[in-house]
Nucleic acid binder design. Structure first.
Lengths: 110, 110
DNA sequence: TATATATATTGCAATATTACGATATTGTTT
DNA sequence: AAACAATATCGTAATATTGCAATATATATA
C-alpha cells in the first residue's frame, strides 16, 4: 500500500490528477506565477525568486515540466522556462467543464 | 526535511496549492466527476462507484471536504455530498488568470 | 431493544514527497 | 586549458500520503 492505484482509473482521470498534483505545492504555484509575471520566458533567475535551495527548485521545475505545465529550452549556459499552454488548457478545461455544469443545475439541490 | 515550507509562501499560494493537491489523486478526480454526473447531490452510493475500500473512499472525501471542494450534509443514515462552488471557483480563477495573461503575450517568446 | 446499514476513525505497513548537501554536468569566459 | 557559472543528479533524512482491516459511531428499521 501507499502507492496510488492508477490502474483502476481512466487515463483522463490520471492525467488530470497528475496536472493537479504538480500544482499541489506552493513553490510550484509560485513558479507558475513568476513565469506569468515576467514578460518573456525567463532564463535563469528562478532560484533567486524562491526561498528554497537550488537543488530543491530544480526538482520542482522538473516536476512541473514532466507534468506538462512548463517547458524549458537550453539557452547557452542557462535554461529558458515557459508555461506550456496545452497542459494548462487541459486542466483549465476540467474546471470550466465543472463550472458550466453547476451553472445549469444551480438550485436543484443543497 | 520532508515537510512543505508553507511559511515561506503567501496565503494565496498556499490556498491554491491545497486546492490543487486535493485534486492530485485520480480517485478524487473521479469523485468530483461523479458528483457532477448525477443530477442532484448524491447520498450514499459513492463507495460503490469507486474501486477502493470504504475507509479509503471516506478518507478521500474527507480531504476534498477539508480543502473546500465539496460539502456534505447528514441526511438520516447517509450523507449527501455536493460540490462546493466557492472552492471550485477559486482554483478555476487561477487558471483563467493565467490563460488570460498568456493570451495577451502570445508569440512574444518561445 | 436488537439488528442492520452507512459512514468515520484508528492503527499500521508500503510507498511517495520534500528538502538539501555534495557532486556531476554543461556551457562560457578568460 | 583553467576557472567560472548555471543547472541537474545522487544520496539520504524527515515527513506525508495511500490503502485497508478492524473497529467505532450513528441512524434506521424490524
Amino acid at each position: 500500500m501507499g502507492a496510488t492505484k492508477t490502474d483502476h482509473f481512466t487515463d483522463n482521470q490520471n492525467e488530470l490528477a497528475v496536472l493537479a498534483k504538480a500544482l499541489g505545492h506552493p513553490a510550484r504555484i509560485a513558479i507558475m506565477e513568476y513565469l506569468l509575471k515576467v514578460d518573456t520566458c525567463i532564463c535563469g533567475d528562478i532560484v533567486n525568486e524562491l526561498p528554497l535551495s537550488q537543488p530543491t527548485v530544480s526538482q520542482h521545475l522538473k516536476e512541473l515540466k514532466s507534468a506538462g505545465l512548463i517547458k524549458g529550452s537550453i539557452d547557452g549556459n542557462s535554461i529558458c522556462y515557459c508555461i506550456n499552454e496545452p497542459g494548462l488548457e487541459k486542466i483549465k478545461g476540467f474546471f470550466e467543464h465543472i463550472s458550466a455544469h453547476l451553472e445549469k443545475k444551480r438550485n436543484e439541490c443543497c
